[in-house]
């Protein structure tokens, strides 16, 4: 890695902190994926990486490249928008898929709800 010598100190320090914070939160999220006991608890773990994990690294990237190229570099905002829109959709799909599988297998620890998803769709 080559850091230009004229990079201001505060930019270097702030970028370091943000990158480490983002990477650390992502790691904690995946450690939670290993440590939590059942699927529905594990669903919560990766959201650490997809909210503040991505956010901190993107902020670091925006800051670093804006100073490095001495013009506003903002295209990282796009990744932030895509990730915030897509993560809830995938998680909600996954949870409802898991619920349907548990209902099909007759597992007792999930709440019984009228089947809203596919059945109502077929009636339409």
């Amino acid at each position: 890695m080559t850091v230009p010598a004229d990079l201001p100190d505060w930019v270097a320090i702030l970028t370091s902190v943000l990158v480490l914070l983002g990477a650390g939160l992502t790691l904690i999220g995946t450690v939670g994926l290993l440590r939590l006991k059942n699927f529905y608890a594990r669903v919560h773990a990766p959201t650490l990486g997809t909210t503040l994990g991505v956010g901190c690294v993107l902020l670091a990237s925006i800051l670093y490249f804006t100073v490095l190229q001495s013009r506003p570099v903002l295209h990282e905002v796009l990744i932030a928008i895509f990730v915030t829109i897509t993560t809830p959709v995938t998680l909600m799909l996954l949870v409802s898929a898991a619920l349907h599988r548990d209902w099909d297998e007759g597992n007792g620890h999930v709440p019984m709800q009228p089947r809203l998803g596919p059945d109502t769709k077929e009636q339409e």
């Binding site: 890695m1 850091v3 010598a5 990079l7 100190d9 505060w10 270097a12 320090i13 970028t15 370091s16 902190v17 990158v19 480490l20 983002g22 990477a23 650390g24 992502t26 790691l27 999220g29 995946t30 450690v31 990486g49 690294v57």
Partner: peptide, 19 residues
């Protein structure tokens, strides 16, 4: 500060590989 940046990016990459 530049050396700190080099090291923390390397550590962050290691943490992400662990993740």
């Amino acid at each position: 500060a530049q050396a700190i940046l080099v090291w923390s990016v390397a550590i962050a990459e290691f943490l992400l590989v662990l993740a």
